[in-house]
Amino acid sequence: MARRSGVDRSGDRGAVTAEVALAVPALTAVLGLALWAVGAAGLAMDCTDAARAGARAAARGDSEAAVRALIARTGPDGAAVSLERAGDLVTVTVRARAAGPGPVPLPALTVRGSAVAQVER
Rank of each mutant, 00 (worst) to 15 (best):
R3L: 13
R3S: 14
R3Q: 07
R4H: 07
S5F: 13
S5P: 00
S5Y: 10
G6T: 07
V7S: 02
V7Q: 02
D8L: 04
D8I: 01
R9T: 11
S10T: 13
G11I: 03
D12V: 04
D12G: 01
R13V: 12
A15Y: 02
V16G: 09
T17G: 15
A18P: 06
A18I: 10
A18E: 04
A18G: 12
E19K: 06
E19V: 11
A21I: 05
A21T: 10
L22D: 01
A23K: 03
A23P: 01
A23Y: 03
V24S: 00
V24D: 01
V24T: 12
A26W: 00
T28P: 00
T28L: 15
T28M: 13
A29W: 04
A29P: 00
V30D: 00
L31Y: 02
L31D: 00
A34S: 15
A34I: 05
W36K: 06
A37N: 00
A37Y: 02
V38N: 00
A40C: 07
A41D: 02
D46T: 10
D46Q: 13
T48K: 07
A50K: 08
A50I: 08
A50Q: 06
R52S: 08
A53G: 11
G54F: 07
G54I: 12
A55P: 10
A55F: 13
R56D: 09
A57D: 04
A57G: 04
A58K: 06
A59S: 14
A59L: 12
A59Y: 11
R60C: 06
R60G: 14
D62Q: 09
E64F: 00
E64D: 15
E64A: 15
V67K: 09
V67I: 05
R68P: 07
A69F: 01
A69P: 04
A69W: 01
L70M: 06
A72V: 04
R73N: 06
T74E: 09
T74S: 12
G75V: 07
G75C: 08
P76Y: 08
A79Y: 08
A80M: 06
A80D: 15
S82M: 07
S82D: 14
S82C: 04
S82E: 15
S82Q: 13
L83I: 15
E84G: 11
E84C: 04
R85C: 09
A86S: 15
A86W: 03
A86K: 14
G87A: 10
G87P: 10
G87I: 13
D88E: 14
D88W: 04
T91Y: 04
V92S: 03
V92E: 05
T93L: 10
R95M: 05
R95I: 01
A96H: 05
R97A: 15
A99C: 05
G100Y: 09
G100K: 11
P103H: 11
P105D: 12
P105M: 12
L106A: 15
L106H: 07
P107R: 12
A108Y: 08
L109C: 07
L109I: 08
R112E: 15
G113E: 03
S114I: 03
A115D: 11
A117C: 11
A117W: 10
Q118M: 14
Q118W: 11
Q118I: 10
V119C: 08
V119A: 13
R121T: 12
R121A: 13
